[in-house]
Design a protein around this nucleic acid. Sequence first.
DNA 1: GTTATTCTTGACACTATCGTCAAGATTGAC
DNA 2: GTCAATCTTGACGATAGTGTCAAGAATAAC
Lengths: 191, 191
Amino acid sequence: MVGVRQFDEDDVIATALDVFWRKGLHDATMQDLAAATGVQRGSLYNAYGDKEAIFLRAFDQYAAQFLESAGNALAHRDTTTALRNFFDMIIVNMTDGSPARGCLTTRTALDAGISSAAVRQRVQDVLGRLEQLIGETLGATPGGRRAADAYRLARVIVTFTRGLAVMERAGYSRKQLKESGATFVDAVVGA
Amino acid sequence: MVGVRQFDEDDVIATALDVFWRKGLHDATMQDLAAATGVQRGSLYNAYGDKEAIFLRAFDQYAAQFLESAGNALAHRDTTTALRNFFDMIIVNMTDGSPARGCLTTRTALDAGISSAAVRQRVQDVLGRLEQLIGETLGATPGGRRAADAYRLARVIVTFTRGLAVMERAGYSRKQLKESGATFVDAVVGA
DNA sequence: GTTATTCTTGACACTATCGTCAAGATTGAC
DNA sequence: GTCAATCTTGACGATAGTGTCAAGAATAAC
């Protein structure tokens, strides 16, 4: 290696994630990324190819961290506690920052101008793995549900979390989201 | 009146609604609207001012029709039946067309590049009125819930419908959405 | 210290979109 | 048929974004 890269790639991706999280893939421009990272547009093109490539790296990092947090939150013997933790985590994740950043996965799923198969696939992967995690949690309950029921319910829970992300964008406060989350958990699992 | 308008305003708004529904406020361009309606860009600017004004008209029409459909679907004595009808309506609404158009309200709520207070307000209005409709339905059940419970649950139901809209965008089929809807209704109300 | 390689930089060409405007076309009212 | 108001049309300037490229800067290896 000669003529060495002037910036730390991990830093750039982490900063890019923040930009994409706030603006969305479509609305974040290369100029935004250049300004936020302090790396010139040309260098970014040279290093990564194009905006989508940067997004994919950032999203992968986000997804890994997100799924790990979800897994941790769900790691409780008591299903109700596990789900409460999980919802707390989800809601904090989307209401964090000022102004709040919302949920990147949901924003990306709704981003109109995305035809990229790679991006769609990532979104589906995150949701699928989340479903899996929750399904395992529900099925593993001592004297728990039948597997089919657990996974059907897991999908309902994932769907509800997506709904929370939309409500956050619509202007509902963290407190309101938490109340809905609690009501949901009581209604669905507590019963 | 002299120099009379060459197009039918209702037709234009209806066509514009279709364009916005498919592309979103941000991604639909005046050129798209001009091409779809057959009315030149300049004429649209002359008649409506700008894109947002057209969107607001189209969205109002959409919201009125949507809330009426919701009200009809919910108009059943039996709460469970009412909710089933409601979810059928919602899911058909978002999976209709090919390719499916998704949910306009949800898309608009997530649209990143929207700073317009007017637009945000419309989204909140639709969700608020929907909550109201569902709350009334739940509260009106013979021997029904306490009002506070009904409205808290109504918000959970609205949230879940938003989740369905996201899942549709993520690639879930009408059939899968209906299954989740049914599971949700059973879990939340059937219990 | 020289070299060869890689990165950085700023300018460039291209495309898309917005909103505006003057000139022309249209038509109801008289 | 003429007039006057309104609509339509196509062109314009401005802005913003994309991706590319040649020239220059930096540095690891020798």
